[in-house]
Design a protein around this nucleic acid. Sequence first.
DNA 1: TTGTAAGCGTTATCAC
DNA 2: GTGATAACGCTTACAA
Lengths: 348, 348
Amino acid sequence: MAKIDDVARLARVSKGTVSNVFSQKRPTSDEIRERVMRVSKQLNYVPNHTARSLVTKKTMAIGLTIPYGSFFFTAFHMQFINGVILEAAYYGYRVLLDIIPSQEVKTPFLTSYPIDGAVVMRPTANDERINQMHLGQIPFVTVGHVMNENIEHFTSVDNDNHQIMYNICEYLISKGHKDIMFLNASELMTVSIDRKASFIHAMKDHGLDVEEHMIHHKPDLDSSEYMDYGYEETILILGKQKKKVTAIIADDERTAFSVLKALKDLNLSVPGDVSLFVVCGDHSMMVQSNPALTSMDLQPSELGAQSVRLLMHQLGVLQGDFSGNIIVEGKIIERNSVSTIDHKEKHN
Amino acid sequence: MAKIDDVARLARVSKGTVSNVFSQKRPTSDEIRERVMRVSKQLNYVPNHTARSLVTKKTMAIGLTIPYGSFFFTAFHMQFINGVILEAAYYGYRVLLDIIPSQEVKTPFLTSYPIDGAVVMRPTANDERINQMHLGQIPFVTVGHVMNENIEHFTSVDNDNHQIMYNICEYLISKGHKDIMFLNASELMTVSIDRKASFIHAMKDHGLDVEEHMIHHKPDLDSSEYMDYGYEETILILGKQKKKVTAIIADDERTAFSVLKALKDLNLSVPGDVSLFVVCGDHSMMVQSNPALTSMDLQPSELGAQSVRLLMHQLGVLQGDFSGNIIVEGKIIERNSVSTIDHKEKHN
DNA sequence: TTGTAAGCGTTATCAC
DNA sequence: GTGATAACGCTTACAA
């Protein structure tokens, strides 16, 4: 590969000038610029990204850290990633997928991350990756709030998980549901902690008790139960234990579909016997499902875009020291999986 | 951030020695290694990735190039990406998402790619990105074969699209279907070219004519029709034009769901009136759909892993100059969306 | 096994 | 506007 000296020599200018032509950081005369570009094309020269990074201390890449424990992407992840990539590209940044797989990895020793900043998706409590970023002094914004000791971090994007969960409960309760089963996200994630609290809160506010069988958490990725989350719980609680449950809240569409399958196996109809509410999920899937699934739209793509914008502020790409929380609204989208319970009927 | 000199000074060794401790390329005495590590921890030192890259000429990252025109990920993409990331991580490589968005981008001037190699997903005919890689001398493997002038490239991973399409057709024909509508992928992608050819081939082999209304191509991403692909075609051909169609082959699950919706709107049942066959698609979705969708499993995750392995051979990480095509098998998974046509019944 | 010093390919700082 | 030259932080011969 041709290097800057080759171009400089052939164009009979100094390397500094060639550099200026490409970086556009200093003006150059038309004549020289043209000559340099012509020679560059001829030699097939492009500036070496790594060398440039070494001196500018910018990699023009941001890391996208996917939560450990949700390695199988859901629609939420995909849409979020879409939002991040698109927005990052807009500012000339590339996205480095930064996933810590649970499997063994060959990386012998760590090095610094070749990124200027990072978007950390759904941090867990005391998330080790957050500590890493903090130590490495890498600017980052999280989706979902940080719960690490000694780290006060106020740059994050999130839905208002408290509000969202509260709204979902009120929605269901207003339809006459009292026996609600909540299939929450992984216990480790901070969002699930918030949602659980709000679930309990909302129930209490309406004079409803929360029993143990009503809240479940998604198992770890390594767990054999991971893929069946939703199915097993439904079979167990509604089938074997014969608990009364009139509505189920599922954490994502995969879980929702598992529930649907379990309900079918139990000969229970939706929403006739049991109502189903999905937190997030892919629109086209929700629509087509039978019945179409009522859901809470978390606007993942918007979350992704906003998180990048926040990061750009931290990196100085966007003006203004904009740090803080951005709340993206969640909207209930009514479809056909939730029905109203007529309590008089139930009295016989 | 601490640098290697700081560590060297404090540990009273040379920078070369510190380097050796971290890179493990040369043996170091236990005593010194320990001292260096202790000081490093104390100073919070990690080797600078960029500086290392500059001299080793390795970035330890591979690019993952998602096809232009399919910016909305399907299950195929997600599973493929999963396969790539996992396998790359195993060899200590990170993955740089390398998507060329159709929108305007701020990148003023190009630089070299900070990657050691790339996986190019679903290249189009005369794919510009392939030309770029070729020019930049970046090793790459494609998923789907290359159709660029002057570029002979034999390192790719693929399903046997000819065989797959042929098998699908034979499967449908064996069930008595003669009027099959094929909702193909984007016209630009090389896979769609192969599949179209095989579709026609298979039909001809069974004495069936292929009329114009039987083959469609997914519109461009920018097109307003993109999201409705499947719905519009079904309404148009089966509804307005009242063409006889007993089976539909959909390119992905999104398209399949759109078709399902259109069919419902047309008051046509699946598989009673029309059979539906999906190429690829997410297992959990296909299973839960009503009816469960019969599909061809393309094993995207396996494709991803294999493509990385091939790339590792090219990068010398894996031994042996393994270049060529790896074919990943496609398997028909029978569920409930395809029915057998009894031709006697149709004679009244 | 460890130290020394010459790069790696840019950009940045000065002069001019 | 342009040209020298010193960084940038590391690896790697080569020497010791």
